[in-house]
Design a protein around this nucleic acid. Sequence first.
RNA 1: GCCCCCGUAGCUCAGCUGGUCAGAGCGGCGGACUUUUAAUCCGCGCGGCGAAGGUUCGAGUCCUUCCGGGGGCACCA
Length: 479
Amino acid sequence: MEDDRRAKLDRLRADGVEPFPHDFDGVVAIAEVHAAHAELEAGEETDAAYRLAGRLAARRGHGKAAFLDLIDRSGRIQLHARFDVLGDESFELLTSLDLGDLIGVDGTVFKSRRGELSLRLDDFKLLAKSLRPPPEKFHGLEDTETRYRRRELDLIANEDARELFVLRSRVVAAVRRYLDREGFLEVETPVLQPLYGGAAARPFTTHHNQLDRDLYLRIATELYLKRLIVGGLERVYELGKNFRNEGVSHKHNPEFTVLEWYEAYADYEDAAARLEELVACVAGEIGYAGAIDFTPPWRRVTLREAIEEAIGVDILFTRDPQALVDAARARGIEDLDPTETWARLVDELLSKHVEPALERPTFILDYPEELSPFAKAHRAAPSEDRLVERFECFAGGIEIANAFSELNDPDEQRARFEAQARELAAGDEEAHPYDEDFVRALEHGMPPTGGLGLGIDRLVMLLSGRRSIREVVLFPAMR
RNA sequence: GCCCCCGUAGCUCAGCUGGUCAGAGCGGCGGACUUUUAAUCCGCGCGGCGAAGGUUCGAGUCCUUCCGGGGGCACCA
């Protein structure tokens, strides 16, 4: 059948038809036509003329007439072609088109007897010949592998997919608009870094040939952005990819899009308020109508309370891993590993016993210092609790954001790095490497700052009701 | 890394306990039809069942290995 299309291509050229012309000016979106003529009665004709372009998605032949479906990014419209309007040659060319061919059309709007808004073709032009058959038109393309690996086919075949990625684009645009309006500067910091940092994760390593040195793909933008706060930019954000050398799952892709913002003279409570406002604002702008209520204020609960509520254990009664494991075991939690650190055990309790149940947007506040090397000590909590001003925000059972009152005491930061260095030496591959450039920057003085990271892919999952990150990433990592 | 599942025409899929099992719909090709809409009607199968071995008189159908994928676990604070 590919041969059929090749043969048609040859025939077109032989007949002097250019199968790949260079342009087609003056095209409007199909959605525009629908919007302008929504009120038309069935059977009603107009003399409103439009020029459209898109892909031929279906054809219903009818002898001396034909109905065709044209799709563009904005939608679908039916075309009606008549032999007596187009003439012999043109009509024949039209009926020899293949599904998947790209065409441009001129025509006038009418509504068919059956009530479908349509365009009566006055003229059309082949804009690009398709040499391969498109996916099946009724079931669409359902094979997950093909949908992910060959996303173009998914986009051709599935209106859902088109709408989703249009939605994603609108989400990102709305996020930018909000931050721009609030006086934030969008900046770009290095993706290739001599030292990675800002998160607990293993990096991808690459190599610069001319410099003959290894570089890391960033795992976070945090440290560079805070250096910009030291530099006086006051409100900055970066929206871009982070890379983490980790497994894939329904909520993890090795490269993922993150928004980080830093705001001078703010703390984590300001960040929480801003996140609520931002997400509610974005949800409103895209017309979100799903099950999650993003209306501020969101629920706030401390980590200690959340874990106690979930499993009945007060994590702050000890810093001893074995004691915590024993306490958890007394409440029926058997699968904790006593050789882990206390902090990692706390984290495991959070991710296994608290996070999955957090459907409505919830801030979990006030983390142990050991889990948060860049967050400032809690101003109100007893010092023996060693808590920091940090929150993670969850919704739909997944973590979407992480924020702190940024640690800006350089000596304290150095001490935290040293603690991390000991972890690293002890074999924790995800501990933070010591970043002297960052500490030196802090020594010049960083204002009190509230910073936040928001997972854009996960936000899009929530706002689109998708359960897998692969659904919302155009070309997800495949095995 | 481990466990489970899947891999049949361009697409969606049916093929029970191994013996016309190489099929259907959509798509395609040829023909009819000037308002249809998963258009309809008539005719045509365009793949040899992910790959390689093996068991068997006989294998999409059973076994082994490999490849690709999905899901789960681990990992991912």
